[in-house]
C-alpha cells in the first residue's frame, strides 16, 4: 500500500468517524430535547393559560392554521394570572414554605444519621466493608412505595411501634405518629438515607489515614482531629448528600400523601391534587414552574459542586 493510498484511507476513516460520533451525540440529544426540554416549554406556556371547560382543559389553544395573526392572539391571551393567584392565596405560599421546612429538617436529620453510618462504614474492617456497603444499597433497589408502605403498619395508632412501647410500659397511651409531620420526617429519612450515606462514605473512604495520625502527632486530640481534618475533608460528600436528599424531598409526593396528615402541606401533593382532583391544569403548571424556580438554585449549585469535584480529582 502506497503512502497516497494510506492517506486516502485515513481520510475516509476520519469522515466516517465524525459521522459516527455525531450520531452518538445526536440520538440521545434529540431524545432529551423532545422529551425533556420541550415539555418544560409546554408547562410554561400552559401555566400562562386559563382554565377552560374543554378538552384539553385550558385556553388559548395554539392554532397554526391562522398564521401570524394566530400567533399574535395566542401570545396576547397569555397572562400571569395563575402566578398572581398563587402568590395571593396563602394556601400555596404556605405549601411552599412548609415544603422547604420539611425538606430542610429531614435533610439535617438524614445528615446526622447518615454521617455516623458512613463514618462507621469507612472505619470498618476491610473485609467487612464491601458487604456492609452492599447492605446499605440493597434497600434502595426495592420498591420505594413498598418501603414507605412498610412504615404505615409500624406507625399507626394500633401499629407495631405503639404495641411494643405499650408492652414494655414506656407509654400508657398510644402515640399519634401516623398522619403527622413526624411520620413524614421518618419516611423521608428512611427513603433517602442511602443517598446521604454513599457520597459521604466515598469521601471518607478515600481519605488518607495518615492525615489523622499527623493531626494527632501535631498535638490534637482524636475529637479535635475529627473536627479539624475529617469533617472538612468530607464536606464535598456532605454537600452532595444534602443536595441529593433536599432536592427530591422538596417535591416529594408519595411520602406526605401516605404518611402525612391532612394538615401536612407539601407542594408535590398540592400539585397532584390540583391536577388530578381539581383538574386545573394551568394552575398545576404554575405550581410546577414555581417549584422548578425554587429548585433551580440548588440544582445549579449541585452541578457546580460536582464539576469542582471532578476537576479536583
Amino acid at each position: 500500500m502506497g503512502p497516497l493510498e494510506r492517506r486516502c484511507r485515513r481520510l475516509v476513516n476520519g469522515m466516517k468517524s465524525t459521522f459516527g460520533q455525531r450520531l452518538f451525540v445526536l440520538l440521545p440529544y434529540l431524545w432529551l430535547l423532545v422529551l425533556f426540554l420541550a415539555p418544560f416549554v409546554i408547562v410554561l406556556k400552559i401555566s400562562l393559560s386559563d382554565l377552560a371547560v374543554s378538552r384539553p382543559p385550558y385556553t388559548p389553544q395554539f392554532d397554526y392554521r391562522e398564521g401570524w395573526a394566530g400567533i399574535k392572539t395566542f401570545f396576547a391571551e397569555l397572562d400571569f394570572e395563575n402566578f398572581i393567584f398563587l402568590a395571593e392565596d396563602s394556601l400555596y405560599v404556605n405549601a411552599y414554605l412548609s415544603s422547604l421546612k420539611i425538606a430542610g429538617v429531614s435533610t439535617i436529620l438524614t445528615l446526622l444519621i447518615g454521617y455516623s453510618i458512613a463514618y462507621a462504614l469507612a472505619r470498618s474492617p476491610q473485609r467487612w466493608r464491601g458487604t456492609l456497603v452492599m447492605l446499605v444499597i440493597l434497600p434502595f433497589w426495592t420498591s420505594f412505595l413498598i418501603r414507605v408502605y412498610a412504615w404505615i403498619g409500624i406507625l399507626k395508632t394500633e401499629g407495631l411501634l405503639n404495641q411494643l412501647l405499650l408492652h414494655i410500659g414506656m407509654i400508657s397511651e398510644p402515640l399519634t405518629i401516623m398522619n403527622t409531620n413526624t411520620a413524614v420526617y421518618i419516611g423521608i429519612v428512611y427513603s433517602y438515607l442511602p443517598f446521604m450515606i454513599l457520597p459521604i462514605y466515598a469521601t471518607l473512604e478515600k481519605m488518607d489515614e495518615s492525615l489523622l495520625e499527623a493531626a494527632e502527632d501535631l498535638g490534637s486530640s482524636r475529637l479535635a482531629a475529627f473536627f479539624l481534618v475529617t469533617l472538612p475533608l468530607s464536606l464535598p460528600g456532605v454537600i452532595a448528600g444534602c443536595f441529593l436528599v433536599f432536592i427530591p424531598a422538596l417535591g416529594e409526593f408519595v411520602i406526605p400523601d401516605l404518611l402525612g396528615g391532612s394538615d401536612t402541606l407539601m407542594i408535590g401533593k398540592t400539585l397532584w391534587v390540583e391536577f388530578f382532583s381539581n383538574r386545573d391544569w394551568p394552575l398545576a403548571s404554575a405550581v410546577a414552574i414555581v417549584l422548578l424556580m425554587l429548585l433551580i438554585v440548588p440544582i445549579i449549585l449541585f452541578q457546580k459542586q460536582q464539576e469542582k469535584q471532578e476537576l479536583g480529582r
Binding site: 488518607d208 495518615s210 492525615l211 495520625e213 499527623a214 493531626a215 494527632e216 502527632d217 501535631l218 498535638g219 490534637s220 486530640s221 481534618v229 472538612p232 475533608l233 464536606l235
Partner: peptide, 20 residues
C-alpha cells in the same frame, strides 16, 4: 504518653499534608 502529648514529631511518608 499519647502521640499528641509527646515532644516527638513525625514527617510522614505520604507527607500527610492537610489538603484543605
Amino acid at each position: 504518653v499519647p502521640p499528641a502529648k509527646r515532644p516527638v514529631n513525625m514527617m510522614f511518608q505520604s507527607y500527610a499534608l492537610f489538603p484543605h
